[in-house]
């Protein structure tokens, strides 16, 4: 059962990666990166459930905070430069 869920999550990430390679403009690529980061947060929690490791939840929380700040920084840069 778990393997199906992992396949769904992996397909989502692969489609976003294709959009990141193909994307005609820079904001397209930024959107793909943001979507990948949200999917990865959920994937880390799910991997923690499969491996029965509580520490993965902390990793996922810190990852969510860091990617939030990273995406905000990318958006500020696209808007008016550093």
């Amino acid at each position: 059962m778990n393997i199906f869920f992992l396949v769904f999550i992996g397909l989502g990430i692969i489609l976003c990666l294709l959009r990141m390679i193909k994307g005609p403009t820079t904001p397209d690529r930024a959107v793909a990166v943001d979507t990948i980061s949200t999917i990865t947060t959920a994937l880390l929690v799910f991997l923690g459930f499969i491996f029965k490791r509580y520490i993965y939840l902390d990793v996922s929380l810190v990852y969510a905070v860091l990617t939030f700040i990273g995406v905000i920084a990318i958006a500020r840069y696209l808007e008016k430069g550093i």
């Binding site: 489609l15 976003c16 979507t35």
Partner: peptide, 9 residues
């Protein structure tokens, strides 16, 4: 999550 990836594509 898969539908989100498909929509972005």
């Amino acid at each position: 999550l898969f539908l989100g990836g498909l929509g972005v594509f």
